[in-house]
Amino acid sequence: MAKKTGGSFLKEAGRGPALDAKSPFAVSGLTVAYDRKPVLWNAGFAAPEGELTAIVGPNGAGKSTFLKASLGLIPKLSGEVAVFGRPIDEARGDIAYVPQRSSVDWDFPATALDVVTMGLYRRIGWLRWPGRRDKERAREMLALVGMEAFADRQIGQLSGGQQQRVFLARALAQDAKVYLMDEPFAGVDAATERAIVDVLKKLLAEGKTVLVVHHDLETVPVYFSHVLFLNGGTVASGPVTETFTAENLQKTYGGRLAATQLAALHEAAGMKT
């Protein structure tokens, strides 16, 4: 994504390109405040279609808030969101959101299969029960994340990583065009990490657009093609090869990243500092 220049002092101070009608997921001028303290200020971003974008930034930079407020899950003070140029409320079916863990009651009487089937509810429609076809489809999704053996297990009896995979399978079942994931890699075991990577690859192969809030800077150049730097607002965004630079990392993280860390990152990215 090309950055906008113009008569401004800092290019990244602006909103980014305004509501790109072609972008699968475009946010502009997003401001969110808790108790009159802005967590996000004037953030903007247009997701490139068919690409895998990492959203990075320090703790409290407003990464989760960015996703939640764009989806209308928390109130925003200002800002516009468009999905392929349409308002988000008309495009719910195009968007799948995988929240950070632990927001549900794990003791709830539901099996892994039940949870994945929920991803199909919108398609099934009101007043209808999930049929055999739906259950089969949900089972296929579970198989994709290596969880078919646990289909009838109550969700609270799964390990954290397994639960995460079930939620991923639920998102797959939605068959959306845009996937928003909030820290899927946080605290997962190796098997789950592999499953997540496989899912991301599969989504990309199908031409989906994916945004992932990501914590581990070292793996950004490994897994992702694009990056969005957030710190209370958009700092920079673009292809990893151009945008994942020492300058932008410094701007986003300030003094929080030691020089040695930066050097290691750039080595990982195969770039010169």
Binding site: D89, Y97, F108, A110, M118, Y121, W126, W129, P130
Partner: peptide, 22 residues
């Protein structure tokens, strides 16, 4: 019977229900 699916969904994960547009 009519709203079993929706009742289950919003009781378990209201946030997800909202993202589905339910």
């Amino acid at each position: 019977l009519a709203f079993y699916k929706e009742l289950k969904l919003v009781s378990f994960d209201p946030l997800f229900a909202d993202t589905l547009g339910i």
